[in-house]
């Protein structure tokens, strides 16, 4: 197989970005001359365009005023701008991140523990199996309005929505992992004198880890989805709220800024998971020298 240099790969990636951004930025300018080539969807009214998104970003993040003048840090303009809008881009990102984090962590921890317990007990898994299948058949997002109704428009409803989409994902992966543990490992541990708890700690948990991690990258995206949907339905702050507000004003740029911020947040969170996984599952990387 032919190998390509990293530079070559990066070159292609830059080129693709340039093409997409260019079409986005200038594509609709050709609409009047070449109407058959340019779909209506490229209209900046719907999807905005990179330059408008950028300037909107600067305004929403209080880096510039609405007239495009840079808000000074030392003269207090920046702070004043932030204070004027309690759901400014920074505050909205922070609140969405915070709720995503709590939804993710509670979902992962509870899903992991439940998966481990049921995965290790034939009795319990036999009892709970139909309930789990039934609840899992519900599209979790459909519960979001009920959750907002029950927990109010504050942070709690976002955390619960996020938790409910994450917990099942992690649960099923952990459950499968705990079921598929190599009996040779548990036998070896038992014959070396391990107690049940020692087997759980030194064999079951580490060998289930690979399964759990396989679910964490989707889980973090799901956690974010849960929070955003919760914010769509009812919230005072957060990125989802920003999107809804911009939509009400028919402001595509505002929505796009929120979407781009969400994308960046998602990328950063996934990268953190990847690093954690690479460290905790480092034993999987070394391949045989044979």
């Amino acid at each position: 197989m032919k190998t390509y240099s990293t530079l070559n790969t990066i070159g292609w990636q830059v080129l693709i970005c340039a093409i997409v951004l260019s079409v986005w930025q200038w594509g609709h300018d050709l609409h009047t001359t070449l109407p058959w080539l340019v779909p209506d969807l490229l209209d900046p009214y719907f999807i905005s365009k990179p330059s408008m998104i950028w300037s909107n970003f600067l305004i929403q993040s209080c880096l510039t005023s609405k007239l495009g003048v840079v808000n000074g840090w030392f003269n207090g303009d920046f702070a004043k701008c932030l204070a004027r809008n309690e759901n400014n881009l920074w505050a909205a990102t922070a609140i969405t991140l915070k709720n995503t984090f709590f939804g993710f962590v509670t979902g992962v921890v509870s899903g992991f523990i439940a998966g481990l317990i049921l995965g290790r007990s034939d009795r319990l898994s036999a009892i709970f199996q139909p309930f789990i299948t039934a609840v899992n058949s519900i599209p979790r997002i459909a519960l979001a309005p009920i959750i907002v109704l029950a927990f109010g428009i504050g942070d709690m409803s976002k955390i619960v929505t996020s938790w409910i989409v994450v917990v099942f994902l992690v649960f099923f992966n952990t459950f499968e992992g705990a079921r598929s543990i190599d009996e040779g490992f548990t036998n070896a541990a038992r014959l070396l004198g391990a107690s049940e708890w020692q087997i759980t700690r030194t064999v079951v948990i580490p060998s289930t880890m690979a399964w759990v991690f396989a679910s964490l990258t989707p889980a973090i995206s799901f956690a974010l989805i849960g929070v955003i949907v919760g914010e769509f339905i009812g919230a005072e702050r957060g990125i989802g709220r920003l999107i809804i507000e911009s939509e009400a004003r028919g402001e595509a740029s505002g929505m796009m800024v929120a979407v781009v911020v969400l994308m960046l947040v998602g990328v950063v969170l996934s990268a953190i998971i990847w690093r954690l996984q690479a460290y905790l599952l480092r034993w999987q990387r070394q391949r045989s020298a044979e």
């Binding site: 040779g184 490992f185 070896a188 064999v203 580490p206 060998s207 880890m209 599952l281 034993w283 999987q284």
Partner: peptide, 15 residues
């Protein structure tokens, strides 16, 4: 009583 398995059952996650 010590037991040695046919297939080595070394834990892959331990050095």
């Amino acid at each position: 009583v010590g037991y040695v398995f046919q297939r080595d059952t070394l834990f892959p996650w331990r050095t």
